[in-house]
Computed example of a mutant assay.
Amino acid sequence: MRGGRGMRDHQDVGVEVRGGTLAVRRWPGAPGGGTVLAVHGIASNGLSWTAVAEALDGVEVIAPDLRGRGHSGDVKGRSSMAAHADDLLAVLDRFGADRAVLAGHSMGGFAGCVAARRDPHRYRALVLVDGGLGFPVPGDMDIDQVLHAVIGPAMAKLDMEFADRAAYHAFWAAHPAFAELTGEAVRTYLDRDLVGEEPRLRSACRPAAIREDAEDELRNPAVFAAIHELRVPARLLWAERGLRDEPTGLYPPAVIESAALTTASLHFVPGVNHYSILLGRRGASVVASHIRAAL
C-alpha cells in the first residue's frame, strides 16, 4: 500500500516472537539496494523512521514496533535489550534478510549495540543515532525519577488520557523539541502511539516495558559495555541539542571526548535535537546519508 502522495510503498506485517506478534512496518527496496533494520527509542514506535525511509528510496527499511510499544503493545514477557536483540533476529529471519545494516535511535542504539555485539554475522554495520553510549545515573534514584528527568513528557504521557487525536498532537506540539516537527509523517507516527477510544485515548506504551528497559539500559554494566565491544563497523551520530531542545545535547562534547570510543566513528550533527535528528527532514537526510555509506 501507499502512505499518501509522494510517500513510499509500505507493508505492515506481523512477526511471531516470544510472547506474541511484533508489528513491523516494511518499506520494500530495489534489487541489490540493501536492507536496514531500524530500531526506535524507549517510548516511541517504528514509524519514527518514516522520514529516513523516505530518504532511502531503493533501500529496504524494516522498522518494528518493539515489544510493549505501538502495535506491539500486547506482546507478553519481560523487556530488555537482550529480548529486543532476540526479536530483531526474528524480524530478519521473517523477511529472509541474511545481513542488514542495523540502525538505532536513543534506546534503540543500546538494543542495537547488544544485538550487533552478540550476532555480528547478521549485521553489516551499526548506525547509532543519539544513543548507545551509556552514562551513569544516580544509583539511589527510583527509575521513574530518572525517566521523568531524562525523557519528561514521554514519561508523563503514560498517566494521561486524551479526548481525541488532535489533543494528543497538541500535547506534543507544545513540546519544545517538536516545534519544527510537522507534517503527515509526524502525525501518523503520533497516531500509532494511541490506543483506546475517544474521549479516553492513551499511549500504547506499556509502562512496565518502559521501566524494565530503562533499568537495563541505564544500570546494566553489560549493556554499557556493548558499544566498547563491537565487532562490526559502527558510527555514532550525536545531536547538537537535547531532549527538550536544550542548547546542550544528550551527549555533551565532554562526554563524547571522555568516552574514548575506538569501536565507532563520531559524527556531530548540528542544528538538530534528540527528536528532530530522526523525525525532521534535515536530520533524517543526515541519518540516511550515513546509512547509505554503511550500506
Rank of each mutant, 00 (worst) to 15 (best):
D140R: 06
L295R: 03
V150M: 09
A209R: 08
C205V: 14
R124L: 10
R282S: 06
V59L: 12
Y168R: 08
K157R: 14
G280R: 02
G29S: 13
M7E: 11
G20I: 11
D216H: 00
V195I: 13
E212P: 07
A30H: 12
V129E: 02
A209V: 11
V13F: 04
M107G: 06
H175K: 07
N45M: 12
R241P: 07
V39D: 11
A82H: 11
V13A: 09
P233H: 06
A38Q: 10
V195W: 01
F171N: 03
L66V: 05
M107R: 13
G96I: 11
A103H: 06
L133T: 02
I256R: 02
A156Y: 12
H175N: 12
G249E: 11
E184V: 03
G32L: 05
I277V: 14
E180Q: 10
I277N: 00
D9S: 13
E16Q: 15
G271I: 04
P31F: 12
T21I: 14
F135S: 03
P136W: 00
D193E: 14
D119S: 15
G196H: 01
W172M: 01
S80G: 10
L243R: 13
H84A: 15
A179T: 12
G68Q: 00
K157V: 14
S80C: 03
M81K: 03
V255H: 14
P153N: 10
F171C: 03
D98E: 15
A234Q: 06
W49S: 08
L126I: 04
D65Q: 01
D65E: 01
P233M: 05
D93P: 01
N45E: 14
G46A: 07
F224Q: 09
H105M: 03
F110Q: 09
E54R: 08
R5P: 11
G14R: 15
A149L: 10
R78G: 04
V39G: 10
A166E: 09
F110I: 00
L236Q: 00
R124G: 08
F162N: 01
L147N: 12
P31E: 14
L88A: 06
E197P: 03
L243E: 07
I227Y: 05
G283E: 03
E212G: 08
L92S: 05
A167C: 03
D57H: 11
I227F: 06
A209G: 10
A83Y: 09
H84R: 06
V232L: 02
A103T: 09
K157C: 03
R118M: 02
A239E: 00
V13D: 13
A284V: 01
T182C: 05
G196N: 02
R78Q: 05
W238Y: 15
E212W: 06
R192C: 02
R78C: 02
V101F: 00
G4S: 13
Y275F: 14
S276Q: 00
V272N: 04
R206E: 07
E240F: 05
V286L: 00
G32T: 05
A170Q: 10
P247M: 01
R69N: 09
V91R: 09
A259F: 02
S276E: 06
R25K: 15
Y251H: 04
L22P: 10
D93R: 03
W172D: 01
P31Q: 11
P253R: 15
P138I: 05
R206H: 05
A90D: 12
G131K: 10
C205G: 03
Q145A: 15
A173H: 04
A167M: 03
E161K: 09
P252H: 10
W238R: 07
A204D: 08
